[in-house]
Amino acid sequence: MTMTANEMIERYVHEVGRQLPRKGRNDIERELRSLLQDAVDERAGDGQPTELTATKVLLDFGPPEQMAAQYHATQYVIGPQLYPFYRFVATIVLSVMAVLYLVLMILTLVTGNSADTASVIWNFLLEFAQAAVISLGVITLIFAGIERVWGGEIVIDGDSAEWDPHDLPPVDDPDRINRFEQVAGIIATIVFVGIFLVLIRPDGVLAPFIAPGFRSVIPLIIVSTAIEVMLKFIVVWQGRWTRMTRTLEIGSELFGLYVLVQILTVGAITTIDFLNWVIRLALFVALVVDAIGIVVKVVKLIFGRKFRPQWHNAVKPSS
């Protein structure tokens, strides 16, 4: 089977163009075509260019994949700048879903409407697998979209012009926060409390198991959660713990302690008798641990080490 020189050139140009981003593709194709024609004509001399002439020229130009790669920068579905954040979000969402499905499964098993334990577990596993794949797909799509639109511009925490080696924090810096962890905490808190509130609404799945008295403390739980989340936002924004946020943290935890006491003294929490005692015991243990934690934090705040300047590592709003 023989081809004309032009046909080979066309195939090559098409193969390169196929691998280029749409923007600028036509122009590159056009230029590449003219360059190939120049080279083929030159090689053919006065004669007609043949398949062999074109073959030699194309061998000089190299494989279309390599040529295309030279024409455009490496492209990512999700680039290295964005990837850690992508993985982080995916992990959080999948973990939250796993816990949620586990809790729902246990509740279904405990309330015992279904006779067949194995099939209940199997169904939950299947549903979880389905939901996990779909969520992961959606998250990936969203991040791929972000990459496409802002891919080249995303720089996380980089401000090399203003970098001063003296700013390096000590290796064991107890005030440094991991932004990812803090954001994870915020998301997890909102998701868990949100789901809990939805489930115990009068028409929610868990509504029958919630004792009427318990509902009076729900506003307190919401306020306490809101305070905690706001505090975490401030910490994430400033990039590190400061004297102010540590003080606010103690205040927030004292309020949390107050809410715990209210829950413990309001009477029955759930309509399932044996669970009531388990929950109350767990809450009591939490109360004691929290109280000790607060005392330790107060002592540390008063007698502990110095804090670095408050706004030190704050994220500067980009202009």
Partner: peptide, 11 residues
């Protein structure tokens, strides 16, 4: 300079 290097470099 190899074609695959030169022409993309121009762009």
């Amino acid at each position: 300079i190899n074609e695959g290097t030169l022409y993309p470099l121009l762009r």
